[in-house]
Write a protein that binds this DNA or RNA. Sequence first.
DNA 1: TTGTACGCGTTATCAT
DNA 2: ATGATAACGCGTACAA
Lengths: 343, 343
Amino acid sequence: MEQVTIKDIARICGVGISTVSRAINNHPDINPETKSMINRVIREQGYVPNNSARNLKRTEAKNIAVLVKGMSNPFFTSMVKSIEKEIKQKKYAMVLHQVEYEEDEIDVALELVKEKRLKGIIFLGGYFKHSSEKLEYLNVPFILSTSGGIAEVSSKTMYSTISVDDMKESYRMVDYLIKIGHKKIAMISASRQDESIGKLRLEGYKMALKDHQIPFRPELIRPMDQSLELYSIENGYQATKKLLASGEEFTALYVISDMMAVGALRAIYEAGKKVPEDYSVAGYDGIDIGKYITPTITTVHQPIEEMAKETIGLLFDIIAGKKQHQHKVFSGEIVVRESTKSI
Amino acid sequence: MEQVTIKDIARICGVGISTVSRAINNHPDINPETKSMINRVIREQGYVPNNSARNLKRTEAKNIAVLVKGMSNPFFTSMVKSIEKEIKQKKYAMVLHQVEYEEDEIDVALELVKEKRLKGIIFLGGYFKHSSEKLEYLNVPFILSTSGGIAEVSSKTMYSTISVDDMKESYRMVDYLIKIGHKKIAMISASRQDESIGKLRLEGYKMALKDHQIPFRPELIRPMDQSLELYSIENGYQATKKLLASGEEFTALYVISDMMAVGALRAIYEAGKKVPEDYSVAGYDGIDIGKYITPTITTVHQPIEEMAKETIGLLFDIIAGKKQHQHKVFSGEIVVRESTKSI
DNA sequence: TTGTACGCGTTATCAT
DNA sequence: ATGATAACGCGTACAA
């Protein structure tokens, strides 16, 4: 039960504490024999250095924190995976942290900065509407990646953003649907209170309609259910079911995320209708599953790999003082697959 | 850039360090006025207590670590979610940690125990074949949940396990397929080296065949590709594609996980065949997506919610000294859906 | 090459 | 109700 400490090891070995410390941290100034002897005892005793004490004392550590809001979405899972690969390659350690929808990511970040010795932070998802005042406390370089935040002017220089222009891409998708002949386009959107990507994607939808002189009809917008898991398959399923039950006419359904589109597909199938014959369905995100479900889903593909690379690259450059904070916008890509057709 | 410490706060407030500490930790013996004054200064200064120092000093903390091997599988995602809910309810904090396929989860756990003051550990996934010698170092109660480990006899009393009998459930599924008339049952399995759930599920398959006097044919077993992401949709897709290309005859395909079954479905579709008319397909796990894809997937459903509850309940009982370590086996359930039919 | 002693930021104990 | 001070386990400057 008792914790073995460095002192115990030193005592057992009959050497000084610092010698043990040197053995652990591969310092040069140590006799190879004493070193291997110490290592043996360490193994025998099952000694593991206390990380808290280490972090407390250490000058620097090489870790990057990644804070994800809403891990369940596979989109983030693969983003995290790409980022992790990049971080590892740079010989840094990644500290992954999930933050709840209701948690304040800045508070979590502040904790983390104190706890680990963070070199940088990457925020994934969530909406960034924190006051610059609060952001100042965060004295570590950080990057918002694929977050739907709109930077306050004053904050622009305090952090970087890597994102896809959700409004523009959303516009393009709806524009595409209109161009292949759809006029009655329903949308499964985020909840009405959403201030994040959901809102931007809805804006894009509205603009596309407007530019084509198609009147906006609120009845065609179906927000996801707040009481269900956000962006989940089931949420898409339920929303689509309600839409179909409402009797509103539409020829295309634009769903705010691929996962939800999967649910939409099922709801349509159960209603005895076919995709794309009866309804065209388009998603957003470009996650893997859209390629493997039948029909495959037309979607807005986001360049995950590139964005991950850029995020890490930029972060390291900023850490090294080579670059200033900047705001990069990546282009998405409309990937046309089986779920949509011209009418 | 400078870190604000408790000392700074004390100095600014003109009080002693311990008073500040009391304000932070909601100790009873403190004047409400001084407390609110201190809190104001803390906010102003953006002070956040250093967690390393805290953990170093603190007697106890209420955290439970959850170590997940292979987070990408949605099965674990929902398991984690359930566990988190339970932990929160008990007013504990959850420390979520992803462990890579090649990492040693015990080493990771040892680190974590030292770093945080863990009250307990939950291992999700992975295979547990560590020597009891090594497990002794872990002087914190831990539970293996849904891991495919077979406890060494000597280790039985050192930890608990919560699991589904993979061999038995796998047997039942194959037994079911045979009973509805299938004799040529192909299987997408884990890699040949797999020593974990993959092996157990394969064993169950073999036993069911044997009990029905159906000869085992290795050609029908298609291991997943080690170079692709394990248990991924794509892996299922590729393996099935190869199986179909091989020309081996079969009427049913048993896939080791639902996610992979999704890929299998697509591969079959692309080959111009239909499910369940041409091939019956069965999965394993019982994840959400199986309910929403068309055809819906027949699967072995694992009682995630219950298992999560039991895991946490047991862990807390053990922590409280109310129970000894034990080994619980839950029953899965064959959920018949659209992807299988009698022939 | 090795050991001693101090300090990291915090909490707990004890005295006031 | 508050303050001074001793730990917590480790790294490291400095002395030996």
